[in-house]
Design a protein around this nucleic acid. Structure first.
Lengths: 229, 229
DNA sequence: CGTAGTTTTGAACAACGTCAACGGCTGTGG
DNA sequence: CCACAGCCGTTGACGTTGTTCAAAACTACG
């Protein structure tokens, strides 16, 4: 059982559609769970027994081929929803990129609850439509953009999404990525070497600074947008 | 006003969730519209004034860069839903690949109707979740698969989806694609030349036959699945 | 038959991947 | 506090895949 009153994403997650009584009912079904960086919450092809809201941290959705190649197909932040309601199995695996905390529900119970709460279902629909838009733009990036365009697009999107999280709004230009080079490569459909070379080149061209492994400071946002294509 | 009683996708489209009275109400808001091959129904960045169900034909969802590169991010068949409810603007353009017919609604009216009909909204949610799964698998294809794997995956998926349409179920192996080489290339994130070469090579290897420009006959499905990765 | 559009084929090229070595943090234990 | 090991990121040389550019073959259609 979860105490929704103290929930940090109370107003941003899909739960925002519920009144106090409804929230209490849903809260009884959910429980908070901590997830360590690297730990996997849901496996690809799994029965997808749970759904969850992200309270804290960042998780990735990964699809793999039989021979071990990986593509990250989604990155989720606090207040985002994870899992696959109304489906037989999870089409991807969900792994924490940082230490994280989620509010977890049995999938069947959640589906039943959702069926009786149209407002919740509408919020979920809106979120899913947004995710679909994002996925489709990402498809354009994967299918048609060059390495430099990919990296530039990625940095711009991340700077926006991280700012949206309210984490590092102080300076809109600089931010800390919640993941390393290999994971950037898995997001962009590149190798780690190509990713690294592109970043190095951008630094050489004065487009950005790399104060530490995971920090990015965009010096020339206009040029970066130009480069993103 | 639309006569839903004669609708060919009555039982497969999201409208299947409605009872006769509700259907009559929705029918009053919709109208049938024919779309010629090549004609665009919705533009990228548009105000997205309409949503629709596909009655007949095949349409593509396209995202373009400023310099004219195109990526097809979705292909819709009869009974599929198109448009972007609850959004400010359409994130891609929707163009008919064959002559088509759609059942079209004003977006605002549709949203209001949906708000009062949770079952309809749930059907739409399920459909959107399915589309999202499909888009994410497609991302893996775009980001991590080789040209031959892309073409093989594409042919297998198309053979399944076209069979699902009930069009050409007679022989599960052979089917007619509703589009040409350039559009296959735009789906797979390849050039038309690479696509053509891969198909030619597969024919040389005996994996398939190409009786005419748009016909495909898969001879060795197992080998094709192997090749899809 | 001729023409326009599409597809196939060929040759040269560029971008990105692969393989391998190196460098520089980070954390740990002496 | 220093030394060292391990990991992650960077850099370089080279190979492969897919793109580009050009031209020929095919198809549909008047």
């Amino acid at each position: 059982m979860t105490d929704c009153a103290t929930c940090v994403v109370r107003n941003r997650a899909i739960c925002a559609s519920l009144n106090p009584a409804e929230l209490a009912a849903l809260g009884k079904m959910g429980r908070r769970q901590k997830v360590r960086a690297g730990q996997t919450l849901l496996w690809e092809g799994d029965g997808a027994p749970v759904v969850a809201n992200v309270l804290e941290g960042v998780l990735k959705l990964v699809v793999s081929t039989a021979d071990g190649r990986e593509q990250i197909v989604g990155v989720v932040f606090p207040s985002d929803f994870i899992g696959r309601p109304f489906g037989k199995q999870s089409p991807y695996c969900v792994t924490a990129m940082t230490d994280a905390e989620v509010c977890i529900f049995n999938r069947g119970s959640f589906e039943e609850f959702a069926g009786n709460h149209p407002d919740l279902q509408q919020k979920l629909l809106r979120r899913t439509l947004d995710e679909l838009d994002r996925a489709r733009h990402w498809m354009m990036l994967l299918g048609r953009k060059s390495a430099s365009e990919k990296v530039a697009s990625f940095l711009l999107e991340m700077s926006e999404r991280l700012a949206g999280q309210g984490c590092h709004t102080d300076t809109q230009a600089g931010f800390e990525l919640p993941f390393g080079r290999q994971q950037i490569a898995d997001i962009l459909g590149l190798t780690i070497e190509t990713t690294s070379r592109q970043l190095t080149k951008m630094r050489a061209d004065g487009l950005l600074d790399l104060p530490s492994r995971r920090e990015i400071v965009i010096n020339d946002r206009a040029a970066m947008e130009m480069m993103a294509g």
